[in-house]
Simulated assay, not measured.
Amino acid sequence: MNDSKSKEEVIEILKKHKISNYQIYKLEQWLKDFNSQVKGNSLTTGFKIMDNNVVDYSKLQFKNTPSYLVNCRLTSFLLVRNIINTNCKPDNTDTYLAFDLEEINNNSELSMTKQDKLNYATLFNWIPLDNAKTLKQHINKIESKLKERNIYIDDSKGISLINVYLHSPFDNARFVGHTGVLIDNGKELLFIEKYGPYAPFQATKFNSRDELKKYLLSRSDLYGGDDELEPIIFENYKVIKTK
């Protein structure tokens, strides 16, 4: 999301789906700060066709470090904060959200209300696996925990949250290793994400959830050791439905 034309297209879609002016304003501010620190012509303009579902930002260079670091979870929550409810009982033993919470607490650009912070932590908390060993058992454990946390996402406006749960055998847990917001725009699906803390904000068009799933699973950074089970992709609080 670099050139004005593509940004305007995305913003119009956000407005159409009732994303508030404040949310859009904050997204634009984050975009402006990040893009302004990228050197030269490292960022492409407009929508481009991907090669084998792969996007490569390894050669991205910066003039200076962005003023504040925004990751995928902070970006997604900004866009869905008004359609999410939880029981507001976060698991404070979760170590995977330490970076996020530090940034929220210490940077005014990322600050949240107490209610939003509780919803944020509860939504993205890790999922302890206990005795779950198989992929199906992992899925059941995630579904059970999300239900226990009373997580509700109002998808009536065509907006849903896509969470990619990765496996940590060391911690015996699943955690949200990547996330983005999916908007059903009628003729196509629009997926909005922050590709990584040091990678751009990105909007991608898909014809189906199958295409989205293939794209997400093509990321090499989602895979670790041989003892890890494969990533699990959820749409809201259910495994993403594909054909």
Rank of each mutant, 00 (worst) to 15 (best):
I240K: 04
I19R: 02
R73I: 04
K214F: 14
V70N: 01
E8L: 15
F34W: 04
Q37K: 03
K187T: 08
K48V: 13
I13Q: 08
T113F: 03
I232N: 08
Q202N: 10
P169H: 00
K15F: 13
D91N: 07
I24Q: 02
V164K: 03
Q37P: 09
T179H: 06
D171R: 13
T122D: 00
D221E: 15
G177R: 02
E193W: 06
T179R: 03
L78M: 00
E9A: 07
S6P: 02
I11H: 04
K141S: 08
F99I: 09
Y165C: 02
A132D: 04
K214Y: 15
Y120W: 01
V176W: 04
E193N: 06
K157Q: 08
N125T: 04
I24W: 03
K241M: 12
G46T: 13
P66L: 00
L123I: 05
H167E: 10
F124S: 02
D184W: 00
N35T: 01
K15H: 12
F47R: 09
N52R: 15
Q37M: 07
S36H: 00
P197H: 08
D56V: 05
I49L: 05
N35P: 00
D154R: 01
E109K: 03
I142L: 06
K133V: 07
S20N: 11
Y152T: 13
Y120N: 00
E230I: 15
L146G: 02
N207C: 12
N71D: 06
S220L: 15
H17C: 11
I84K: 10
K63D: 13
Q137F: 01
N140L: 13
L129R: 04
N140P: 06
R81F: 01
K136F: 09
V176F: 06
N92Q: 06
N105F: 07
G177S: 05
T86C: 06
I84V: 15
S6H: 09
S220N: 15
S156H: 11
S218Q: 14
N106C: 03
K213H: 14
K238I: 14
N140H: 12
F201L: 00
A121Q: 02
E211Y: 07
A121M: 04
Y198S: 14
F77I: 08
K5N: 12
P90F: 00
N185L: 03
P231S: 11
I19Q: 02
E211I: 08
D171L: 14
T204H: 08
Y237H: 14
N21K: 11
H138P: 05
Y152L: 13
I233A: 12
K89N: 10
N92P: 04
D130S: 03
L60D: 08
F206S: 13
I139F: 01
Y120L: 00
K48E: 14
Y165A: 04
N207H: 13
V38T: 01
K32C: 01
K133R: 09
Y96V: 12
E228I: 07
P90H: 01
E8H: 10
N21L: 09
K114H: 07
N236I: 11
V55D: 07
I151Q: 01
I153Q: 01
L229G: 06
F47I: 14
F170W: 10
M50H: 12
V239T: 11
K63N: 14
Q202L: 13
G46L: 08
F62N: 09
L182C: 14
